[in-house]
Design a protein around this nucleic acid. Structure first.
Length: 398
DNA sequence: TCTGGGGTCCTAGGACCC
DNA sequence: TCTGGGGTCCTAGGACCC
């Protein structure tokens, strides 16, 4: 084995569930999921005992419990998973700086620079797996290949706790029997469109003339998919890029009708988004309001005020104006959310003018410091501290 | 069965500017 | 009075991923 397959895809096995098991030996051998416990919860991560019973991520929790009444349901603790994730990524970077994270528990590594120190990329992969286990006690599966997407498919076939190498010359025979849905970018909609053309496997896709494919899925996706089917994927491993948006959303247990209630929720969400902007040292250009109705239709409304968005008050003012502009025709709301995009570093020279917005920003930044020192719930907006029957006013009295 | 929460990227139309 | 082509920004929706 030489170095013609220098891309690793490392994927933690049942990550959230296995992190919980580290603290819960009593869960050994039992079917466990992590996910929303409420009436509208879904499975975020399923352990292997649960998967054997047909339970998988994104499944409604009510369905999962119907399949397995003894299922152990653990509410997500993202702070804990994030802390473990940071340690895992430190392990990755101890091998190479060329680490591209896809989520908390998954990353590509380009190890082509390690040829002087290791006999093969597969040997590097073994050491990465061992280091993660030493550092966290958790199992990872690793795919090793000449391209990113083949490495990703290889790690999938390695699960659980495995390591799979796909040599360059084996790529076509590895890919062609797979269902098209295995390809990155082929979800339910594209899969159904391809099925109408009689395309079920990656091999079928590779054999289809590109014009026919382009008519079904559009020219851009068609070209991309045929390259993937031929094993062509020139995308390099790019060390983590800056975030392009931050957002917060909430699905209510019971649909919400009251405008006052919606504004209170928006105020809290605006503050949480702004805390994340400030802790990342960034500001935004555009605020996006997201609304889902009981029939699951989802709409977004956005505005770009023309000045940088930094404070929770900036976010709230924009979001509440968008909510007022929305004509919901008496419909209740199932989900409400706020996003901010057009992100840029906040350290660009700012006006020193004491306009209202900068004062809000400075005030909230000092609140951040108090929170950091004394704990999360110490300082909250006054309108959230009062009785829920006190409607928020349209003024700045938040 | 009845569908979370956090993201990325693409498309398409209209406004606006040169 | 009728009319180009291209580029960029904004908005909205949708597919997709973990």
């Amino acid at each position: 084995v030489s170095w013609s397959e220098p891309i690793l895809h490392v994927d933690m096995d049942a990550f959230f569930v296995e992190v919980e098991r580290l603290e819960r030996p009593d869960l050994a051998g039992r079917p466990v999921v992590v996910g929303g416990p409420g009436p509208r919860g879904v499975v975020a991560s399923a352990g292997y005992e649960a998967r054997r019973l047909g339970i998988h991520s994104a499944m409604p929790m009510s369905s999962a419990l119907r399949r397995c009444p003894d299922l152990v349901v653990i509410p997500p603790r993202h702070d804990v998973y994030r802390a473990v994730s940071i340690r895992i990524f430190e392990v990755f970077r101890s091998f190479t700086p060329l680490v591209e994270g896809l989520s908390l528990d998954e990353a590509f590594l380009d190890v082509s620079g390690l040829q002087r120190h290791h006999p093969s990329s597969v040997e590097v992969a073994r050491r990465v797996k061992a280091s993660i286990r030493d550092e966290t006690g958790l199992a990872a599966s690793v795919g090793v290949a000449s391209t990113k997407f083949v490495a990703k498919l290889a790690s999938e076939s390695a699960k659980p706790d495995g390591l799979v190498l796909v040599r360059r010359e084996e790529v076509a025979s590895f890919l062609h029997p797979l269902p098209v849905s295995a390809l990155w970018g082929v979800g339910e909609a594209t899969r159904a469109g391809l099925a109408r053309l009689g395309v079920e496997t990656v091999g079928d896709l590779a054999a289809l003339p590109e014009p026919a494919l382009a008519r079904a899925v559009g020219p851009t996706l068609a070209r991309h998919l045929q390259e993937l089917a031929a094993g062509i994927d020139p995308r390099p491993v790019v060390p983590d890029a800056e975030a392009r948006s931050v957002s917060i959303e909430e699905t209510f247990d019971v649909d919400v009708d009251s405008d006052d209630r919606l504004r209170i929720v928006l105020r809290g969400q605006a503050d949480r988004v702004a805390v994340r902007l400030r802790s990342a040292g960034i500001t935004g250009a555009t605020v996006v309001l997201k609304v889902r109705y009981p029939d699951f239709t989802t709409v977004t409304r956005s505005s770009t005020p023309g000045r940088r968005i930094a404070s929770g008050m900036d976010v709230y003012r924009a979001a509440v104006a968008l909510l007022e502009r929305l004509d919901r025709q008496g419909r209740a709301i199932r989900l409400l959310g706020i996003g901010v995009s057009g992100l840029e570093p906040a350290d660009r020279p700012r006006q020193l003018a004491l306009d209202g917005r900068d004062r809000w920003h400075d005030l909230e930044r000092s609140v951040d410091e108090v929170r950091a020192r004394y704990g999360g719930a110490t300082v909250i907006p006054a309108r959230l501290a009062g009785s829920p029957n006190d409607p928020p006013g349209p003024s700045d009295s938040g």
